[in-house]
Structures are given as C-alpha cells and as structure tokens.
Write a protein that binds this DNA or RNA. Sequence first.
DNA 1: TGCATTCATGGTAATATAGCCATGAATACA
DNA 2: TGTATTCATGGCTATATTACCATGAATGCA
Lengths: 107, 107
Amino acid sequence: MTRPNMKVYEARARIIKALAHPSRLLMLDLLQEGERCVCELTERVGADQSTVSRHLAVLKNTGLVEDRKEGVMVYYRLRCKCLRGFFNCIEAVLKDNLKVQAEALAL
Amino acid sequence: MTRPNMKVYEARARIIKALAHPSRLLMLDLLQEGERCVCELTERVGADQSTVSRHLAVLKNTGLVEDRKEGVMVYYRLRCKCLRGFFNCIEAVLKDNLKVQAEALAL
DNA sequence: TGCATTCATGGTAATATAGCCATGAATACA
DNA sequence: TGTATTCATGGCTATATTACCATGAATGCA
C-alpha cells in the first residue's frame, strides 16, 4: 500500500459491508417508512428471530440504525437520511448490467 | 420472507458486496482519475498481483469496471459514474458516527 | 526460437459470515 | 409470584471470503 489513507478505506468498507446483505437491505427499506419492532422485522424477513437480531446488531454497530426500548419491545429506526442516493447508484449499476446483457443477446 | 421481491435485494447485495473491501475501494478511487493497468494497481494496493487480479475480477463480474487489453497489459476503467453519490452517503455515516462518539466523550 | 513481462487461475489455509437452536435477561400482566 | 412475550447472546456448523504461492497463457522483443 503506497497510499497512507488505508484507514479511510477500511472505515468505508466496514459500513458498506454492513449494507451488503439482502435481509439487511430489506430491513433498511422497511425502516425507511418508519420505525419497526424486531418482531415485525422478523416476520417480514422470514428468518429466525435470533438471525434478525444479529443483522440488526450489525446495522447498529455501524451507525446505520438506532433503537429505542419500549416495554418488552425494541424499535429500530434509520440513523442516516442518505440511503436514497446510495441505492440510486446501485440501481444504476443494475440497470446498466441489464442493458449490457440485452445488447449481448442482440448481437 | 413475506415480500416477493427478495431477488431485487439479492441483486443489490451482490453489487454492494463487491464494493465492501478496502483494496477494492482504493482501486475504484484510483480508477476515478482514469484507467490503470493491473501492474500499477498492484503496486498501489501493495498486495500480491494475484490478489489484485482477483479483486479486479470481482469488480468486473458485477459490472463496476471493464477492461481493455493492449499488448501484454490490461487496463481497467470505471463503468459507473455514480460512485460519487454513493460514497457521499458512506462519508456522511462516518462523519455522523464521529459526532456521536465525540458527544459521548463530552458527557 | 528463446526469454522476459504481464496478467489470470488452480490450490490451499486462515478467517469471517450467516444460519439455527437453545437459553438468558428484561418486561408486562394475571 | 408465576407465566408469557420480546429480544439478545452463547454454541455450533456450514459456507464464503481473502490471502499467498505456484504456475499457466498471452504477448513483445532480442
């Protein structure tokens, strides 16, 4: 590594890695509509409750979501408002990939 | 999984996962300035040439970069112009995390 | 043709990730 | 107090990821 700012890339990668899972993306999508308790997210995701809890811990540890306890329930909500632009980029890549595939088939 | 569009989240996750590595982030950063051969990227990243080659294959397989062969060299370049907005989001999360830490220390 | 350079890939080992089950901790409520 | 509900965590296994070394394929040049 010639460049000295590897720490920056590692910090970015940690956050991106937290986003790099289908279930977590789904949960973030649901949370864009407002806070949700673990039990609802568990039902939506369709995985074991312990699995969902760990996914939420990953998102929380990277600062993407925060939680609030109310009685026996725990409600999670987004901490960042920038996800929209983030996913726009991902969608652009996906669309372009489709275009490339279509072109390849048309040859 | 209650929602039927899990495929969409899986597709997104595949792309995000390709972004979720410090070395690959560094390479994308370098490629924003223009195309680079594998040998130069290898030197900048400071890993084994075979390792860098595999990283580039990951980026290529997800449609994030494309390559061009010229003699014995292979030049890689970005395929997406949207990475800026993407990283703006990541940086926003990082900055906010720092703010939270600072506030915690100030208590 | 022989040799050097560049890049990709097979093989392998170490580590990380993700899933579920079982269980523990905290709260609410009868 | 006893019981049920919600959520987090320890334990474990299976799979994926990452790294390096060694080597193969392709090209350029003497």
